[in-house]
């Protein structure tokens, strides 16, 4: 069920949510978090879809904040809030409110979002594009426990990565890091089997890939070795090589979902290592809502021995 509200306020939206829930006959809700998506019109559809898919695992209220850019001066001075309330089958397992802001209210979107947050439940903010430089200081970001950015959606990922390092605060996370989980778990599993000390590391990836950079930094931090960044044809990360006394541990994924794992003294074997869709990444993000300390370690790429 869908309710459209034009030139509205947060309290009218709240009323519409209750009304919507009543109408579909399920007034009790088991939603576990509020997800705030800050995006532009262009990326709204994909992100809402991903959030709705993820809501199957984490029933949530999704608030989509779309800042509209007015073309005429009159529209720019006139401030307006439109809302589209979706409940029931149209909103995954939770409810979705699409908020479109025009004019001045765009700078005060937090005042609209705050009254719509679920009581007591955690808040996650996700910027599919145009994330602020300092997510934690952003008015919307400040409402959240968890702030999700995406280095894949910026023009110069490696420069933005440095900005992220500077402004990191607990609760920040990035989808470029989330994308690495299968790689990292396979590398950890490979090392479980090899049980040897790693003396060198190399990450092969397409140029300017932020995930590869994070992976290299993580390996440097954890293994206390220098990780080489090797540019390959892609797509994304194509291989990781860990040098050991007995030979190389290699996970090689030239293309497609099949990777090859080579351990010293053992025949190569295949591994499934696919590139996951956005909805799976978001679902993974929502599984844990506390600060991702390992992301901080990887961001900074500090060696284990540096800190006291």
């Amino acid at each position: 069920m869908k309710i459209d509200l034009t030139d509205t306020t947060a309290s009218k939206i709240n009323k519409a949510l209750v009304q919507g829930r009543r109408a579909i006959g399920t007034p009790a809700v088991g939603m576990v978090l509020t997800m705030v998506i800050v995006t532009d019109e262009e990326n709204a559809y994909d992100s809402i879809k991903a959030a709705e898919d993820a809501s199957r695992e984490h029933p949530s209220r999704t608030l989509v904040v779309i800042k509209r850019h007015a073309r005429t001066l009159r529209d720019r001075t006139h401030s307006r809030l439109d809302a589209e309330v979706r409940v029931g089958s149209e909103a995954g397992t939770g409810e979705t409110v699409v908020l479109r802001t025009y004019g001045e209210v765009s700078d005060h979107a937090d005042s609209v979002v705050l009254p719509l947050l679920l009581p007591d439940a955690p808040v996650v903010v996700w910027w599919p594009v145009d994330a602020p430089d300092n997510p934690a200081e952003d008015p919307l970001g400040a409402l959240a426990q968890r702030r999700i950015t995406d280095l894949y959606a910026v023009e110069h990922p490696l420069e933005v990565l440095q900005t992220r390092v500077r402004h990191y605060s607990p609760g920040d996370t990035d989808l470029a890091w989330t994308r690495l989980t299968p790689w990292r778990s396979m590398l950890a599993a490979a090392l479980d089997q090899a049980r040897v000390q790693v003396t060198s590391a190399a990450v092969e990836a397409e140029a300017q890939n932020p995930s590869a950079e994070l992976l290299a930094r993580w390996l440097e931090a954890r293994l206390d070795v220098k990780a080489d960044r090797v540019v390959s044809g892609g797509p994304v990360v194509t291989a990781v090589r860990l040098g050991t006394a007995g030979g190389e541990i290699v996970i090689d994924r030239p293309e497609g979902p099949l990777a090859t794992l080579t351990l010293p003294g053992q025949p190569p074997r295949t591994l499934a290592l696919k590139v996951r869709p956005l909805s799976e990444l978001i679902a993974e993000e929502l599984r844990r809502l506390d600060a991702d300390e390992m992301y901080a370690v990887a961001l900074r790429g500090e060696g284990i021995k540096e800190t006291v």
């Binding site: 200081e137 970001g141 605060s169 607990p170």
Partner: peptide, 24 residues
């Protein structure tokens, strides 16, 4: 919640030190 993040963001090095404790 609103006040926490800024406080936290001022001590990146502090976090590194503390979180490094187990790492060290």
């Amino acid at each position: 919640e609103a006040t926490r993040p800024p406080a936290a963001s001022t001590r990146p090095t502090g976090t590194a030190g503390a979180s490094g404790a187990s790492g060290t």
